[in-house]
């Protein structure tokens, strides 16, 4: 006997609600979120940024490089627009750009770059060993493309924005072309 269409829809809704209709709806939502890998880098004021210390805030992370002509500025400009859409709630969201090109990006350069998009943004870099450790802990590669002697080489880097929730769990990945309104609406649900 064919199942009436309506009850199928009802079932789908129930399943969605069980999964949490209140959670993020866009991007690649991680089904069983676990603690995000560690991330710690020195900041310009002599302190350090520790991801583990950010509990209570939602943290967006992008691993890129400041010589990136297209993708990184597109992502950071979209972040800035999403942040404006959040209004006062943006105070509980941290937007963090991490350079995977430590040879050219000092912590100063990385931070100045991130701040061009929004003065609240954090830009981080560090010694090559520290960046290598992050790549290992987070399980991604990042490597120069082209002749590194020329100083105008590109760097292959992860495509996605990683979002860590207020409990420090890696929750959602967004591809670079995510619609800003969708990103903002998801962030609101995580707050």
């Amino acid at each position: 006997m064919p199942v009436p269409r309506l009850s199928l829809i009802a079932f789908a809704c129930a399943a969605l609600m069980a999964a949490g209709c209140d959670g993020p709806q866009h991007g690649a939502v991680i089904e069983r979120p676990a603690a995000a890998p560690p991330l710690e880098l020195q900041t310009l004021d002599g302190g350090s940024f520790r991801l583990a210390d950010q509990a209570g805030d939602v943290v967006l992370l992008y691993f890129g490089y400041t010589h990136c002509p297209d993708v990184c500025p597109t992502v950071l400009a979209d972040w800035a627009r999403a942040r404006r859409l959040l209004g006062a709630k943006a105070a509980d969201v941290k937007f963090v750009f991490v350079s995977v090109d430590p040879a050219r990006d000092s912590p100063e350069v990385a931070h100045a770059y991130a701040m061009q998009f929004d003065s609240s943004f954090v830009g981080l870099s560090g010694p090559e060993a520290a960046i290598d450790r992050i790549k290992r802990d987070w399980g991604f590669a990042a490597f120069p493309e082209g002749d590194t002697r020329a100083n105008d080489y590109g760097v292959a880097h992860p495509a996605s924005t990683y979002v860590v929730d207020r409990q420090g769990r890696l929750r959602v990945l967004y591809h670079p072309g995510v619609i800003v309104e969708d990103l903002a609406s998801d962030l609101r649900k995580l707050l």
Binding site: D70, V71, E145, G154, H157, P158
Partner: peptide, 18 residues
């Protein structure tokens, strides 16, 4: 600029490349 070129950005698996 010192160097000018035509590029396309492409997602290769989880990576972004040009």
């Amino acid at each position: 600029a010192n160097t000018v070129g035509m590029h396309v950005s492409m997602q290769q698996g989880r990576m972004m490349q040009m």
